[in-house]
Write a protein that binds this DNA or RNA. Structure first.
Lengths: 251, 251
DNA sequence: AAGTGGTCTAGACCACCGA
DNA sequence: CGGTGGTCTAGACCACTTT
């Protein structure tokens, strides 16, 4: 019995248990015996059920695999229109900072500075900021939390020559406010790109997700009213806690 | 030697090979012997490298694991010079349809209609379109391809009462054009949200990706100039072929 | 035919954690 | 202590693709 069959069998078992109001599956070893397959095969199928959030797995003595919710069967899903989980909404139409966005939605924002340093600009950063490769840039690595839980990891670069003494204020409480009050610079426009990336081990540890889990990567270049670049950054958002929104008018 | 060590060792090997201009790794069996681990261990580490797009794996006689790009040799990333990006760019600032967007970027667009039908609106769809639950809606399921390779799967709902006889033209060549010429309706504004979802087996098969692989889900409501909803849809984009862009001005 | 990656069985040991 | 999931070794067979 290959994985696909086993997945179907477990799927049926899940529905049966759900209909009986039970939420705990038999142990992996017992499932392996029942379906006459190895435990490894059971684990592959369970891993897929877990990836689809059909089950949750818990270790330890009364641990096991638990049904995460009762789902009706449906062919190709209208399910995708469902928006049950409470996700934090990042509106790409505004230039608000993350903390303000969180407060607007009733979350308690927190920012932890992981690293603040001066370094030579990598090629892509230099290109985005209109500098020569190797020019000095200020590099900030910050972790954003909402209600105490990690939401995103942000790496930002700024032209060190344009903003001298920026690191004197370390740790920086509100960057946009500091740029405005001390340097008279405000963000006028942003160009952003959105892609999926996967979490490296270090990123995963900081964000509290598993390695290689998918993340939303938002790359940004902020510009002043005269078009000169102010900062370029990459935000890595936890996929399970984030929804991006955009509104557009015809052009 | 556990997975993390082995990953680091393979990482070092990757850099060494890259510096020598080589792009092919030894076979899994040889790597296992070299590092005195089982082939399963090698495969776990290689899977991680693949998830990070560090390598590409090919089956068959002269297959193997190949380094996906040589980073060391060139100080300035070749990407910056590439006029036709490896990923297809979906500009969320415009309301252009997918085929037009593809043509603009030099790809050959193709749309395959998977299903076109009339059905009762699910609650969420009815809500988005301002209809009563159960009202008749036209449901379209279409696969978009670029240069013959699957790019996205789109499920769209339209008010059947507003667009009578829409399915008479089945299969629909250009929906936006049809709405304009036959019903005098043009899209004026769109509200879109972006999230990560994972591919079900059926979706994965259509898009040519593996089950549970992450996808970009773009949900949309298109409105006419008077604010009435025209259509609501979900686009599932292959993460490895898509980049979304947004530009904003201060508000 | 031969060598590649893909997948499976079989079994062991570990980390964890409640009974 | 004992049962759970998590991870590892060892080895077999299959599907695929070039030689």
């Amino acid at each position: 019995m290959e994985t696909e069959e086993l997945y179907a069998a477990l799927d049926a078992l899940l529905r049966e248990l759900a209909s009986q109001g039970k939420e705990r599956l038999p142990s992996e070893r017992e499932l392996a015996m029942r379906f006459s397959v190895t435990r490894a095969a059971v684990r592959r199928a369970l891993a897929e059920l877990e990836a689809h959030h059909r089950i949750v797995r818990v270790v330890g003595r009364s641990g096991g695999a638990f049904i995460s919710e009762i789902v009706e069967s449906s062919p190709i899903p209208a399910l995708l229109f469902d928006t049950r989980p409470r996700r934090i909404v990042r509106d790409l139409n505004t230039v608000k900072g993350v903390p303000q966005m969180l407060r607007d939605q009733g979350y308690e924002p927190e920012t932890r500075s992981i690293a603040e340093s001066m370094e030579a600009a990598p090629a892509i950063v230099a290109h985005a900021l209109g500098l020569k490769t190797g020019a000095k840039v200020v590099s900030l690595l910050r972790l954003r939390l909402a209600d105490g839980a990690p939401l995103s990891l942000e790496r930002m670069y700024l032209d060190a020559a344009r903003f001298p003494g920026l690191l004197d204020h370390s740790p920086i409480p509100s960057l946009y406010e500091l740029l405005s009050s001390r340097f008279g610079v405000t963000v006028f426009a942003t160009d952003e790109t959105v892609e999926i990336t996967s979490a490296s081990r270090q990123v995963a540890a900081l964000l509290g997700v598993r390695p290689w889990e998918p993340l939303l990567a938002v790359r940004r270049v902020s510009r002043a009213a005269d078009g000169t670049p102010i900062e370029t950054s990459v935000d890595l958002f936890r996929a399970d806690r984030t929804r991006l929104t955009v509104s557009t008018l015809r052009k």
